[in-house]
Computed example of a mutant assay.
Amino acid sequence: MISHPEFNERTTGTEVASFFADQIRGRTILITGVSPKGIGSATALAFASQNPDLLILASRTRPKLEAVRDQISHKHPDTRVELVTLDLSSQQSIRQAVTEINHLTSKLDILINNAAVNAQTRQFTPEGLEMTFGTNHIGVFLFTNLLLPSLLTAASQSSPGATRIVTLSSAGHRLSPIRFSDYNFEGKQVPPEEDHVKPLPGSFAKCTEDGYNGMVTYGQSKTANILFTLYLQRKLAGKGVGAYTLHPGTIQTELGRDQDPSIQEQFHQMELFWKTLDQGCATTLVAALDPALNETKGLYLVDCQMSDPYHWAEDEVAAERLWKLSEKIVGEKFGLED
């Protein structure tokens, strides 16, 4: 149960920020995936409305970051905003960005892992990972872990659970579990428990000529976001850091800019209510701010309320297996063992 049972799909992030102003004022907040036409910008504007000490915006494209900073400066001129270039598909870029962030602040109260991609053709990260998995999960995994010292510093100075890691997932996680036998989507045979939902709904079943299905790879990456959060939640609760994940709702953003029109039409058939950007960031704000979450065992939120993810996204064995695989991929262990 959250503090406000009246919150729903139409609640805005601006409203949530106003309700929880005390949890924003004077704090240091980092948001990834910030661009003018995305929910990252709405998230930033909502936080900026309630006087944080420092707002760090991180994304791939500097001009887009500057455009959002200009919006914030116009509406909330007293809010300090710093920009960091971050490409979550590149482990080198991630490490450079964390170095910049550490120069800006020694503590981080709230981390919002908002950035994501949804590749519709087979692409690879500089490290040779399938782009969607490599960005949406491995990039987030590495970035978050490298920032843990700053999060733990903040937690040592705050009430338990006030320091938060919020990672955006999607209802799309129901499309696929983690394909441990073929996480790079190379066409290898996988056991039934690792295979995607069959049949896939409508246009979601479309593949490229080489067999790549962007909706399945996206679903896998969003399941990974939830399992990653589950592992963090279990390992960090005793250290004063909360971790939550969520489905933001259906929103028209640049995430779907490369999608086939038939896939866009499929979304419209499946979801009648499309949120505004401000409504689309509301559940993120609840996950980041609501003190009532400290008293729950909840993991996943939808429309500003607690919900249950699909069964394969709350499997603690899979969460630990994914963590170990991710450490192997990035070549670094992060020591969160009990």
Rank of each mutant, 00 (worst) to 15 (best):
S159R: 12
E130A: 03
L148R: 13
Y244A: 01
I39T: 11
Y218H: 11
P291S: 12
E6R: 15
T99D: 11
P261Y: 09
W312V: 07
Q189L: 05
P52S: 11
P126L: 02
S170Y: 04
F141I: 02
V16M: 11
M270A: 15
A21H: 08
Q305Y: 04
S221H: 09
Q91F: 04
V117F: 07
D338L: 11
Q120R: 13
H4P: 03
Q269T: 09
D308R: 11
G26V: 00
A115T: 12
A205M: 08
S262Y: 01
L54E: 02
S3D: 13
A115D: 11
L55K: 08
N294Y: 01
Y212N: 13
E314L: 01
S41F: 01
A44P: 04
L65S: 09
K206I: 10
L104Y: 03
L142A: 08
I29E: 08
Y212C: 06
P261N: 13
Q92Y: 14
E295M: 04
G331A: 08
M270Y: 14
W274V: 01
D78M: 15
D78I: 15
D182M: 03
E15H: 03
A155P: 00
R69I: 00
R321S: 06
S159E: 12
L86W: 01
S73W: 05
S307Q: 03
A115Y: 09
I112P: 00
R257L: 03
T32W: 05
E337K: 07
P191G: 14
D78F: 15
L232T: 07
K64N: 05
T245M: 12
T135R: 07
L86K: 06
